[in-house]
Amino acid sequence: MSVVQDLNAIDVPRQFPDHTQLPESDGTFVKNFQEHPQSIILTDSIDPVLQRLHPDGLYAIGQDCGIYWRETEPPEKGAEAPDWFYVPRVPARVDGQIRRSYVLWREFITPTIVLEFASGNGSEERDATPLSRSAEGETIRPGKFWVYEQVMRIPYYGIYQITNGNLEVYHLVDTTYERMTPNDRGHYFIPPMQVELGLWRGSYSSHSEELWLRWWDESGNLLLTGHEEAEVQRERANVAEERANAAQERANVAEQEAQQEQQKRSQLTERLKSLSPEQLQALGISLELLD
């Protein structure tokens, strides 16, 4: 038997699939109308920070995208889809294509943080059920908390309950998630990203005043979205214009007052010139002062 025939006779396992070969959706509905705007706020406001941290552009942000951690049938059962996550040191595109999902067995770099926006009571997001088999031999799907903690080993995990505004942030210490304590501002510091995570009440897009998950810098300054930054710049320009207009108005008033004063002096001089020398002398005015 030839070498080629020998190779053909070997049962070689198929190559692990990549992001182009795996489903990009599990077919579930978006959980609520706030989910997409919430993701946009987080991405838009943090992007300048990540560009500074990664001047080479090597970082990726996922929004309701699958993170595949094991091969299953169907494939979606081997993935978790955080509402928002950030991965350092990887490109946003692979072979010129925008990522459809994030495949751990292809990348080997785990996300730094994952965030879940819970519409319910958060029990699904806190589910620590481990991967196991039933008495009948069927695989029991593990809970998100267990997968993020024990398999993906993601350093920071945030659960935001939209229904009641509760925010929980966990930090992986050794092999276990420990719930973090907020700082004096009520924020959670994420050292690898050099930012704080917390809740902010305000209006965004078409939504009336709501609680939103937001980023702050290490000094406690809110990181603005592009739209908010543009509004601030417009407001600054308006204030600068108002100040310039006020200064110009004051200059105009001062000029008018000076002109009026000069006019009064000219009129007085003309009146004094019409007087006789004797009258001027009686008033104690020298003729030389009128020249």
Rank of each mutant, 00 (worst) to 15 (best):
L58Q: 14
Y160E: 04
E35N: 14
S266G: 10
R234Y: 02
T20I: 03
P13K: 07
M193T: 09
R14V: 11
Q267I: 10
A247N: 12
E35Q: 13
R93S: 12
I61F: 02
G66S: 15
I46Q: 03
N166K: 12
I162S: 11
G284P: 01
Q194Y: 05
N164Y: 00
D44M: 03
T225Q: 08
V94I: 13
R14I: 05
E73K: 11
I162C: 05
Q5N: 10
Q97E: 14
C65W: 03
S134T: 15
V114Q: 01
E241Y: 09
Q233T: 12
A246F: 07
I113M: 12
E228K: 03
N238W: 10
P111V: 05
M152V: 12
P82E: 08
G120V: 07
L268P: 00
L50W: 01
L283K: 12
G158Q: 04
E76G: 05
Y59E: 04
F33S: 13
D83L: 06
R234G: 00
D64L: 03
A92S: 15
E270A: 15
F29A: 13
Q15Y: 05
Q63I: 06
G202R: 07
R141F: 08
V169D: 00
E76Q: 13
W215N: 08
P192L: 00
P88I: 09
M1N: 10
I41Y: 04
S39Q: 14
D217M: 07
E242T: 10
P277L: 11
E149R: 07
S25L: 03
W200E: 10
A81P: 05
N238R: 15
K77M: 13
D95K: 12
Q248D: 11
S25Q: 04
G202I: 06
I61R: 07
T225H: 06
T139H: 06
F108G: 11
I162M: 10
W215I: 06
R70C: 14
P13N: 03
Q256N: 11
H171Q: 13
L283Y: 08
T43D: 14
G122S: 02
Y86L: 15
H171L: 08
L289M: 11
V4D: 10
W212T: 05
N221C: 11
P37S: 04
L290Q: 05
A60M: 11
D6S: 11
S2Y: 01
L222K: 08
E255D: 11
L22V: 04
E178I: 10
L58N: 13
I162Q: 14
A92V: 09
N121F: 03
A92P: 04
G186Q: 07
E255K: 14
F145N: 08
T163P: 00
S208D: 14
L213H: 02
F117D: 06
Q5V: 09
A128S: 14
D291C: 04
R214T: 08
G186H: 07
G143L: 11
P88K: 10
L199I: 15
E257V: 13
R89W: 06
G202P: 06
V12A: 03
S101R: 06
S276M: 02
Q51L: 12
H19W: 04
Y177P: 02
E229D: 10
